[in-house]
Design a protein around this nucleic acid. Structure first.
Lengths: 225, 225
DNA sequence: AATTGAGATCTGTGATCACAAATTAATAAA
DNA sequence: TTTATTAATTTGTGATCACAGATCTCAATT
């Protein structure tokens, strides 16, 4: 029986090397929670689903393993990494340490066009919160944060932060499905105000508090996944 | 003509997969400055030098590329990453943000045996500074820092910090050969005192200042490499 | 019905082959 | 001697093959 392909993967533009396309696609799938943490994944299975040879999948997978998004069990079985209390605490610490810094660095690069985009995303976010749409919430929350971070030319911090989100997202989606969005404050508005005011310290603070709130919400749900 | 093998690479213990041994070996070589940043490296050349097939080298290289230690030029040429002012500033920011945090986290795990080891390393470090031995200085400085960090079970922060050092070391060795060690204060002693006192805040501060000093020393040397 | 064990299948890992793009070497023209 | 053009080699990338160990299947035995 031929393996079922994933729903709606972006088609590859021929200029891009296959392994990078596979990597980007797997990132998307992980971020969107298509893989259940702990359930084994096979290189040949992915290759068949993506209609490529196993080779580029190997390279993409080894990249994701070295970034911590995938993990290999004692007897060489690959799966999306499971969350532990230890990992969670360190991921939060790393996010709180790096993301406000990058946000402050990015502020001078945020032009009016990007600000408009951020405000628009925040609006969609509010709708997602009020309607309890977890799918949209996680999507627009990600877009909002990286909409700020990616304004800055950041060859070091941005990839690190991306890898943190990659490790965090699968777990986030699991617990978000239970917790709901009703208790979420909106620190994004404080961030937007800080951007308007051109105040990097206030922006860093807003991002810090936004992360802290989101993480606190999930902290007690770790063992129950 | 057969390619010349690298001097003194640790032999592979058969239990370890070949690709991981290659990865660890390349890490060592990069940390020890065996590769000149910007000079192209070939997969087949490494494979021949290490007496393995090109395949495990490919996996190790793609890992190092995704970690930023190696970079691939526009026309697919691989080399050790060159330092830029942008990268340098972000690497310093990341180090200052993460390493003091991990040091503070690691403090409770530092037993008397490890403390003794750190004191011993610091002694060798003093000798290296007074004799102007750059080689030993970089080695023992690395050992001292990771002697602290590795005390803590750290699945997230430690690998990130390792990748930061991996990107920084090749550049460090280049400029250290010019700058000399004569002006270096010894913040390591402050760190040791903080460990003895069981004071995580003081330890974080000592690490912070140690990094700041070392980085300041190199900051103006960037464009001249 | 439960358990065991032999055979088949699947998986990650390493080796080898194939190929287009790029670099280098060699040769010819000035 | 210098420059331009062509041939040969090298390089990264992708496909395929090989293999040992793990996993699964399923019939035979208790």
């Amino acid at each position: 029986m031929p393996n079922k392909a994933f729903s709606k993967v972006k088609p590859r533009q021929p200029a891009l090397p296959v392994n990078e396309w596979v990597y980007a696609t797997l990132c998307e799938l992980i971020l969107h929670g298509e893989f259940v943490p702990g359930v084994t994944i096979t290189l040949r299975g992915i290759a068949e689903s993506l209609d490529v040879s196993p080779m580029p999948v190997r390279e993409a997978a080894s990249r994701l393993i070295s970034e911590g998004a995938l993990e290999v069990s004692v007897k060489r079985r690959i799966s999306v990494s499971q969350m532990t209390q230890e990992k969670f605490d360190e991921l939060v610490l790393a996010r709180l340490s790096l993301e406000p810094e990058l946000a402050a660095l990015a502020l001078p690069y945020i032009d009016s066009e990007r600000l408009k985009l951020l405000i628009d995303i925040d609006k969609k976010l509010d709708v997602a919160i009020s309607t309890g749409n977890i799918e949209d919430y996680t999507k627009y929350n990600c877009q909002f944060h990286f909409g700020i971070y990616e304004a800055a030319p950041s060859p070091v911090l941005l990839p690190i932060i991306k890898s943190l989100w990659l490790r965090f997202s699968p777990f986030y989606r699991i617990v978000a499905g239970r917790a709901g969005t009703q208790t979420l404050d909106d620190y994004h508005e404080a961030a937007i105000d800080a951007i308007k005011a051109g105040d990097p310290v206030a922006l860093a603070k807003a991002i810090h508090e936004d992360i802290e709130e989101g993480m606190d919400m999930l902290n007690e749900s770790i063992g129950t996944s």
